[in-house]
Design a protein around this nucleic acid. Structure first.
Length: 465
RNA sequence: GGCCCCAUCGUCUAGUCGGCCUAGGACGUAGCCCUCUCAAGGCUGAAACACGGGUUCGAAUCCCGUUGGGGCUGCCA
C-alpha cells in the first residue's frame, strides 16, 4: 500500500508554527514511506480566505523545502462535487434538509444555555419544513446511541458516545460544504491513507467517521498529534509574539534549523538533537511521537540556528546576506573580503541578520565611536601607542595577520604593554566599539590603507596631532 | 457545565513489554578554564518522575482516584 498524506491549510492567515509542524510530520511520514504528500487548500470560508494568505503559505512551504506531489487541490473549485455527494446522502435518507435559520438556532442555543440545558440538534425541528422554495441546510442523520470508535495510531481506541454528537450540518445554506464534510469527501477522493493532524481535531474525528460510513467510504488511519503551546501553556497564538514561519525567516533563521526544531517538538529519536532533512526522513516514525503538548521554546530554535550557521558554506551565507547588506547601502558582493568576514562572524552570529549587523565597520568608512568605548580607550596615554602603530604598520609590506601580529609584539616589547592594552584601543579606532572578531583578522580584512586611516582619525579624535 | 486528550528538570525529551534509574541527553542557567574584546569551545554544578491509593519481592514505568493543564462544545477551519 502506498502511503498518501496531506497537508490541508485554510488560507486565512500565515503558515504558522503549529501548521508547519503538522505539515512537516505529514511530509516526513510520506517521504519515509516513499509515499505521496499532497496539498489541499481549504478555502470554503469565502469571507476569511485570501489570495495573499495562500501565497504566503506556499512561499513558506517552499522555504521549508516541503515539496508536495501533484498540483494542490482547492476546495472552492469543487463545490459541485460536495453538492453531488450531499445529495446522494439526501437520496439515501442518511441526511435531511433543515429549514431552521442559523439565527433561530442561535436563539435556541442561547436559551438552552441560560436554562443550563444541554443543547443538541437531533431532528427535533426537522419536521418544520417550510415550502420547497425556502433555503435549507443539509444535516447528517446521526445515531442516537452506541459508541463511535476512533482508532488513533498514537492514542489507541477512543470511544465517543453517539449521544454526544448532534445532526451536524454538512452543506450550508449557501451551498458550501462544512469543514467536516469537505474533508471527508476530499480525503476519500484523494485516497489519503494516513491523516496526521493536531489534537484539536480529535473531536471532529467521530463526526467524520460517521460521514465515511454514511458514504460507504473506507476510513483512513488517524494520528492526532498534540499541540504546540505558548510559554504560558495555552494554545500558541499571536499574543505569544511571532508565530508565522515567514517572521522567523525574516528574523534570519535558517529553514534547516526550523525543520529540525519543529520536527523535534513532539517527536524524538533517543538522545539525538541534530537532524538533517535526510536524517529525519530516514528516522521518522509514528512510534516516536509524543502524546503530550509541547511548549514552543525560541531559545532552542536559536541554538539550532547557530549550529547550522556554523556549518553552512560561506558562499551560501553570502548569498543570503548580500541582498540585506545592499538594503543597508553596503557595497557588498561575493568576494574574498565577504567570505573572510563571514568566517569571522560565524561563531558570533545567531541569525543571518547578525552577520549584517556586525559587519557594518567593514562596509562603511564613517566610524562612530560608542561613547563608553571612546571614553575608556581613546585617551591621551594611548597617543604613543597609536603613533608607533601607524609608523610601523605603514612600513609593512605584506599586510597579513602574521605581519600585523609581529608588529604588535614588537610594540609590546618596546613599551612593556600587554596585548590587551594595545588591541582594545585599536579595536575602538577601527570598529567604533569594543566588540569584534580578533583584532589581527579585522585589520587584515580592512587592509592597510583603511587601518592607517582610521588610526589617524582616532589619533586626531584624541588630539594627538 | 458536558465530552475528549494529556501529566519526567524552567523548556524539549530518553526511559520500548516493571528491576541495569542513587532517572540520561539537549536548550537555557550558575561557576571555572581558554582569551586582545565579544563569541565559539572545554570542564563542573544546580534543576524533574503532580498527589493519593492499590497490584507486585520490586513501579517513573501497570490499575483506580484526585489534582492540574489543554482542546472541543458553530451553517469557522
Amino acid at each position: 500500500m502506498t502511503v498518501i498524506t496531506r497537508f490541508a491549510p485554510s488560507p486565512t492567515g500565515s503558515l504558522h508554527i503549529g501548521g508547519a509542524r503538522t505539515a512537516i510530520f505529514n511530509w516526513l511520514f510520506a517521504r519515509h514511506n516513499k509515499g505521496k504528500f499532497l496539498l489541499r487548500i481549504e478555502d470554503t470560508d469565502q469571507a476569511r480566505s485570501t489570495d495573499e494568505s495562500l501565497d504566503e503559505i506556499l512561499r513558506s512551504m517552499e522555504w521549508l523545502g516541503l515539496n508536495f506531489d501533484d498540483i494542490p487541490i482547492r476546495q472552492s473549485e469543487r463545490l459541485e462535487i460536495y453538492r453531488e455527494y450531499a445529495n446522494k446522502l439526501l437520496d439515501s435518507g442518511k441526511a435531511y434538509r433543515c429549514y431552521v435559520s442559523p439565527e433561530e438556532l442561535e436563539q435556541k442555543r442561547k436559551e438552552a444555555q441560560q436554562n443550563g440545558e444541554f443543547f443538541q440538534y437531533k431532528r427535533q425541528w426537522a419536521s418544520e419544513s417550510a415550502g420547497q422554495d425556502e433555503p435549507f441546510a443539509i444535516r447528517l442523520s446521526t445515531p442516537d446511541h452506541g459508541d463511535i470508535q476512533v482508532h488513533d495510531l498514537l492514542r489507541g481506541i477512543i470511544n465517543f458516545d453517539a449521544k454526544e454528537i448532534d445532526d451536524f450540518v454538512i452543506l450550508k445554506m449557501d451551498g458550501f460544504p462544512t469543514y467536516n464534510f469537505a474533508v471527508v469527501i476530499d480525503d476519500s477522493l484523494m485516497e489519503i491513507t494516513h491523516i496526521l493532524r493536531g489534537d484539536d481535531h480529535l473531536i471532529n474525528t467521530p463526526k467524520q467517521i460517521l460521514i465515511y460510513e454514511a458514504m460507504g467510504f473506507k476510513v483512513p488511519m488517524f494520528a492526532h498529534v498534540s499541540m504546540i503551546l505558548g510559554s504560558d501553556k495555552t494554545k500558541l497564538s499571536k499574543r505569544h509574539g511571532a508565530t508565522s514561519i515567514e517572521a522567523y525567516r525574516d528574523f534570519g533563521y535558517l529553514p534547516e534549523a526550523m525543520i529540525n526544531y519543529l520536527a523535534r517538538l513532539g517527536w524524538s529519536y533517543g538522545d539525538e538533537e541534530i537532524f538533517s532533512k535526510e536524517g529525519l526522513i530516514e528516522k521518522f516514525s509514528l512510534e516516536n511521537l509524543g502524546k503530550s503538548a509541547a511548549v514552543f521554546n525560541p531559545e532552542k530554535l536559536t541554538w539550532l540556528n547557530t549550529h547550522y550557521l556554523k556549518e553552512k558554506p560561506g558562499k551560501e551565507i553570502a548569498e543570503l546576506i548580500i541582498p540585506l547588506m545592499k538594503d543597508k547601502g553596503y557595497n557588498a558582493e561575493l568576494d574574498d573580503k565577504l567570505l573572510m568576514i563571514i568566517e569571522q562572524l560565524r561563531d558570533r552570529s545567531k541569525t543571518i541578520i547578525d552577520f549584517v549587523d556586525q559587519s557594518h565597520y567593514f562596509y562603511t568608512d564613517h566610524i562612530e565611536y560608542e561613547k563608553k568605548a571612546r571614553d575608556k580607550f581613546l585617551k591621551e596615554d594611548n597617543i604613543p601607542v597609536f603613533k608607533s602603530l601607524i609608523k610601523q604598520l605603514t612600513m609593512l609590506e605584506s599586510f597579513d595577520q602574521d605581519s600585523i601580529h609581529k608588529t604588535f609584539e614588537d610594540i609590546m616589547k618596546k613599551t612593556g604593554l600587554k596585548l590587551g592594552k594595545i588591541a582594545q584601543p585599536t579595536r575602538v579606532a577601527l570598529t567604533g566599539g569594543t566588540v569584534s572578531p580578533g583584532i589581527f583578522e579585522v585589520m587584515e580584512i580592512l587592509g592597510k590603507e583603511k587601518v592607517i586611516d582610521r588610526l589617524n582619525k582616532a589619533l586626531s579624535a584624541i588630539g594627538g596631532n
